[in-house]
């Protein structure tokens, strides 16, 4: 576990911690009720009792950002969980058994990769209807490909190792060999990919919500808040500034954390996946 104490990693860990804290303890951290409206103070700028100001309905922006962390993290974690489980399973099967299974899985991967990701997400959400669950489904359909390719590559390498050949020769069943000998070798790069994938999913959710295809009002979502705030640029700039800042800090924190984890968990990762 070397290089864990670099500045980037610590900053990343701190920002990520803040993101999780906001999401988990939103009711205790948020200074106001995120949906309480004070129509007499619409669009008011930052002040001591409303640090990030008030929005077009007179709701406290800071509280909505704190609650928005829940939406971002819920989408992000769900997407990472679903796509990593599906991707690792399919990639392991493809790599371990080869043949028709491998061909089928990799063909689907290639087709999905040929299609620009965000375009596919837009099209899928448009098809399924804009809401939180469908955003998770759409992003998972795109997301598993990376994990599948990563896992298959690792499995192909490990499959030839003496200890795997030995385990098979001793009569271990395929399922046992995969679970006991193959998957432990894949877990580190998958953790790194999941951390970076969490950042990607949060950004993608915000993009979709920004386009009006994500979480629908009145649920506080950073992307949707930014879209709503855009209408008041020049009149109430803080409505566009703070939600965007939240998105950037969350994404930056997770990217830092992921980069730090690369060095700590898996120095080979950078070479293999970033060439």
């Amino acid at each position: 576990m070397r290089k864990l104490h670099t500045f980037g990693f610590l900053a990343g860990a701190l920002l990520t911690l803040l993101l999780f804290a906001c999401a988990i303890a939103a009711p205790f951290i948020a200074p106001h009720d995120p949906s309480a409206q004070d129509s007499s103070r619409r669009l008011e700028g930052p002040s001591p009792d409303h640090l990030f100001g008030l929005d077009d309905l007179g709701r406290d922006v800071l509280s909505r950002i704190v609650w928005g962390a829940r939406v971002s993290l819920r989408v992000g974690l769900s997407v990472v969980l679903v796509s990593s489980l599906a991707g690792v399973a399919l990639g392991a099967l493809a790599g371990y058994f080869g043949g028709a299974v491998e061909t089928a899985v990799m063909r689907v991967c290639d087709t999905l990769l040929a299609f620009p990701g965000i375009l596919l997400a837009i099209a899928l959400v448009a098809m399924l209807g804009p809401n939180l669950d469908n955003v998770i489904i759409a992003l998972s359909i795109i997301g598993w490909v990376g994990y599948a390719r990563l896992t298959r590559g690792q499995v192909l390498k490990v499959r030839q190792m003496d200890y795997v050949v030995a385990a098979r020769a001793l009569g271990s069943r395929s399922g046992r060999v995969i679970a006991r000998h193959v998957l432990p070798n894949v877990i580190n790069p998958v953790i790194v990919m999941a951390t970076l994938g969490l950042a990607g999913a949060i950004l993608a959710e915000a993009s979709l919500s920004f386009l009006g295809l994500g979480v629908q009002p009145p649920t506080p979502s950073w992307g949707a808040m930014l879209t709503a705030g855009r209408r008041y640029i020049g009149q109430a700039d803080h409505l566009a500034i703070f939600p965007g800042l939240a998105i950037m800090l969350a994404v930056m924190g997770l990217n830092f954390l992921g980069d730090g984890l690369i060095d700590a968990l898996d120095p080979k990762y950078r070479r293999e996946t970033k060439e």
Binding site: S207, V251, N255
Partner: peptide, 19 residues
Amino acid sequence: GVSMPSFWLGPLLIIAFAI
């Protein structure tokens, strides 16, 4: 630049250079 979403950069540029 890598962490800044374009849908935030755009509005920021508008605030600075247009408004």
